[in-house]
Amino acid sequence: MRTLLITGPGGSGRTTVAAATALGAARAGVKTLVLSADRTDTLGAALGVRTGAAPVQITPALTAWRPDAAAGFRDDLAGFQDRASTVLDLLGASLLDPEEVTPLPGAEELTLLRALRDAALAEGDDLHELLVVDLPPTPQALALLALPEELRRYLRRLLPPERQAARALRPVLGRLAGVPMPAEWLYETTARWDMELAAVEAVLADRHTAVRLVAEPGPAGDDAVRDARLGLALRGLPVESLVANRVLPEEVADGGLLSGLVAQQRKFLGEWGEVHTVAHLGRDPRGDDDLTALAVPGVNPAAFPIEWPVADRLAEDGVLVWHIPLPGAIRDDLDLIRRGDELVVTAGPFRRIVPLPSALRRCTVAGAALRESELRVRFAPDPALWPRTR
């Protein structure tokens, strides 16, 4: 299954492009599922059909689904209360009724991740060839895409696997140490969360997953595209295509009020290079005819994850060089920290903590430089850890 994640700055028309992309793929005979997490039914407005918690069949090859964040949040909270009932009773806590629960900020994003996992693990009649995901605006989307990896890292730090493996000895250790040990439900919950997050992380890391960026050509759109490319590259996610939305035709540039806007759009389109333009229809697109008129590009099957190769230069320079593509990065906004077997990479407003490849764990950082939109980190073998040659 291919997964196409669609995002862009707020108000850029990303949901409309997601609907048009999914509809176009379905018309080409590709069994497609389009997902959205908007509280308001923007996806349904574009498709001309109401969407909601239950998947809706739009055409024989197209299904739309907008999971219910409120229901998912209530179910999760009810499950937590059941598992932690003993502890909550000891604390004298008053349990919450599902009817009084309101989703907290971020519930939509978590619901979307869960739906993404469920769609990827579907089998039989529920299996789709293409999954189109209408992500939130770019800043929230980048934070959302980072969430599975970061949460799994937190879980491993708080409850390491080796500690979980010894949980059968927990009662004995508790008596010997004289301190309370984590309850069984906590281990079980952690293990379940880790499995769910791993499934989402696998979808994002899959070679058949890519991102389609949507933006209006202009100063704000240019800033958003530059930041999005950098943030996505740091996550190893390729940009399958850049869609310039709501592009005005040349005919309106007749010396009137729109002439300046047309000129500005053409300027940024020239700077963006390879870009697919979607014309402004003069109205908000709605329904099959309008979505077809947008003529969005088909899904590019040639997109692959961004690779971070390690170049062996031991023979020439005595170092290994880790190449990290960071398009649009600025040298003064880069920062690196070596933390044990991890490297903390900060690029502008984005940060990622990545485990070092096995060969580099036995090395020390010997320097770094930004060259040709790549961060190149040099590692020198540590004589105390590197195998000796005969």
Rank of each mutant, 00 (worst) to 15 (best):
R175V: 00
T190V: 06
L237T: 01
D41L: 13
A384G: 12
L173D: 02
R339C: 10
V214H: 04
R338W: 09
L104F: 11
T21N: 00
G8K: 07
T209A: 11
L142D: 12
E216N: 11
A141Q: 14
G260I: 10
E184S: 12
I306C: 02
E109R: 01
G8T: 09
Y187G: 02
V321H: 05
G13H: 03
G8Q: 08
P349A: 06
V56E: 10
H323Q: 07
A64L: 12
L113E: 06
L230Y: 04
L112H: 03
A220Y: 10
E271C: 01
L356A: 10
L127W: 05
L47I: 04
T51E: 02
L121M: 04
T209G: 10
P98D: 05
A369N: 07
A302R: 05
P171G: 00
H276M: 12
D289Y: 14
L33T: 08
V225G: 15
L33N: 07
L343I: 03
K31E: 09
V247I: 09
W193V: 03
L135M: 02
T15Y: 12
A220P: 04
L158W: 13
M181H: 12
A293F: 11
V225R: 14
G282L: 06
V133H: 05
A205E: 01
A384I: 15
L370F: 02
L95V: 06
T59N: 08
T364Q: 06
N245S: 01
A84V: 08
D333I: 02
L269M: 15
P148A: 03
G256L: 15
S36G: 15
V252K: 05
A54H: 15
W322G: 03
D382H: 11
V34Q: 05
G124Y: 09
G256F: 15
P182H: 08
V252F: 06
A20S: 15
A220H: 09
L197D: 08
P238Y: 01
T51P: 02
L147V: 11
W65N: 13
L144T: 13
L151M: 08
G318P: 09
V133F: 06
E188D: 08
L234Y: 10
G367T: 09
E99Y: 03
A166N: 00
G13N: 03
